[in-house]
Amino acid sequence: MSVVKQDRRKERVDRGIKVRTDGVYAVSSWAEITYLLLPRMVLILGLLLAPVVLTAFPYWQRVLSHICVYALLAIGFDFLANFVGLVSLGGGLYIGVGAYIAALLNSHYGLPPYVTVPVATLAGAGLCTVILLPCLPLRGVYFAIVSLMFPLLAPRIIEALDIFGGTDGIVGLDGFPSGWVEQYLMIGCVLIAVFALRRMVTEDVGLVFRGVKDNDQAVKASGIDITTYKALGVFIAAVLGCLAGACLAHIYMWAGISQFGLDYSIIPIAATVVGGGGTLIGAVIGCVILVPISELLRDFGTLRIAVYALILTGFIVYKSEGIMTYVTRKYEQFERWVEI
């Protein structure tokens, strides 16, 4: 509640559902059910219908796939940063690892996408977790710095050793059978990831994760190994990232060192900050907003990076709660001025 003048203050009043506590509602009418379901349905139906609506614009259908790729990364980033307390600036690592594993399985062993994607997801997530395992005791800034280093390091190594196709990457992969399969696969994954994680963070396991973030000493004293949970958190984020990477490889029918690139590290962060950290859905909304902007600016080359770096700065400095938190507050409460 912000005090603006001395004799007036802003008051916030809950609306919509009469009886509720933190996340538990006593629903008593259709109006209330609608009130609760409407925002969720807008998101779900919006994403599900988007490919149909965009049928006439194949280019934007492709953009939709990109949105989903970034959304998966952003969900992972948000989960890891706001529920486990590990800020991983290196989303490119997951994408790259996922893409390369899928590409190798596809090009060397001829496995079809419906085998390579799941295998790359799990194997890649395992690999990323093992890579990051020594860094897990690090906190805050230090973990952020190290995690930023890995995606910078990987392309240099691939370049220097000239493995996996070197700077050319691995080309000629199988695509998905059709655009529809591609879109709905991606959208399905995003929706499942978002709602599954939102459920998980409110369960008891989620509380343990939050404990690891806020209060690791107390968690240790409670007989729980924080490294296990941090590793589990990284694994979950890596599963999402590697899934996105594997799909990306098949969407482009190509895997290369640019998939360790800056875009995959910075856009998910920007999307999470813009959408609202700690809400998971905010990360998706952020991607829905930022990725098309980035596509529109594609003609201007690297200006798009500058643009979303500025958007990111603006949000983190002036509106750090993000869109989702703001909108939720407006939706669930109304504000009024009261005299004191």
């Binding site: 600036l89 910075i266 900050v273 080359g301 690297t302 200006l303 500058a306 500025l310």
Partner: peptide
């Protein structure tokens, strides 16, 4: 806010660098 500091300064840096590259 250590993380915000990193993200904000990194973002400003990115904006400068990529802005220079473009302009």
């Amino acid at each position: 806010m250590a993380i915000s500091e990193i993200i904000a300064s990194y973002a400003i840096g990115l904006a400068i660098i990529e802005g220079l590259r473009w302009g």
